[in-house]
């Protein structure tokens, strides 16, 4: 067991964990969108899980820092909050959404993050950037809403883990990046019927299973 101090509170955790995971398991919340605990190399793309660790001269992403004995971590300093709010604003500048129309029950991860950071869902004072994406993309079993997607990469990762030949992938690049599916596969041969991992893990409600699929998954669990 390793002991570390987070926000002046001592917590215990096992070796090999990231600071983020240790905190989350001990009931200390740090905003995050792209973290998956089974992932060997963290994606570290959402830039929301910043913390200050004694010995570092600037905040670091807690998902990429492994726990060490006697580590002193602070999760709520002004520089941390400033970075998190800016990262969140940057995400929202390409992500038009309103709490009222959120398809996720109880609000998606973004709404919860906004509440936690005490900021709105708009990118102010940053500008809003219009992405040239389709409103809806049909991915056979799912409907993909590119404008809701923050490209955290969780769905691509779980698809790769669950299926030898991954079905979801990043397509295009840069500002045009979307989640895509390609292949001339008979829908009945797709593992999606029972998998649904991507839609379950999506933090923003960008991948929604089609109604007939949810019905099927319920009838043969």
């Amino acid at each position: 067991m390793i002991k570390l101090i987070v926000d002046e509170k001592e917590i215990e955790t096992e070796e090999g964990r990231s600071v983020l995971q240790a905190c989350l398991e001990n009931g200390i919340f740090i905003p995050n969108l792209c973290f998956i605990k089974t992932r060997q190399q963290p994606h570290a793309s959402c830039r929301l899980c910043f913390v200050e660790i004694e010995g570092f001269d600037r905040p670091v992403t807690s998902c990429t820092e492994k726990v060490r004995e006697g580590l002193v971590v602070r999760t709520d300093t002004p520089p941390v909050r400033r970075l998190q709010r800016m990262a969140f604003k940057l995400l929202m500048s390409g992500h038009p959404c309103e709490a009222k129309v959120c398809p996720v029950k109880g609000g998606c991860q973004l709404i919860r993050t906004a509440k936690y950071l005490k900021v709105g869902l708009n990118p102010k004072p940053l500008e809003f950037l219009e992405r040239e994406v389709e409103e809806e993309v049909d991915l056979t079993f799912f409907t993909y809403y590119p404008f809701r997607c923050v490209l955290c990469g969780k769905c691509v990762y779980v698809c790769r883990e669950k299926n030898e030949h991954n079905l979801l992938t990043f397509a295009q690049r840069g500002f045009d990046t979307v989640i895509g599916f390609f292949g001339d596969i008979d829908p009945t041969d797709l593992p999606c019927h029972t998998c649904l991992a991507c839609a379950t893990i999506c933090p923003t409600g960008a991948l929604i299973p089609k109604p007939e699929l949810t019905r099927e998954a319920k009838s043969n669990p």
Partner: peptide, 13 residues
């Protein structure tokens, strides 16, 4: 022996 999606992802990049 990789998925078509993988090829598509690389090619569109």
């Amino acid at each position: 022996d990789i998925s078509p999606s993988e090829v598509y992802g690389v090619a569109t990049f």
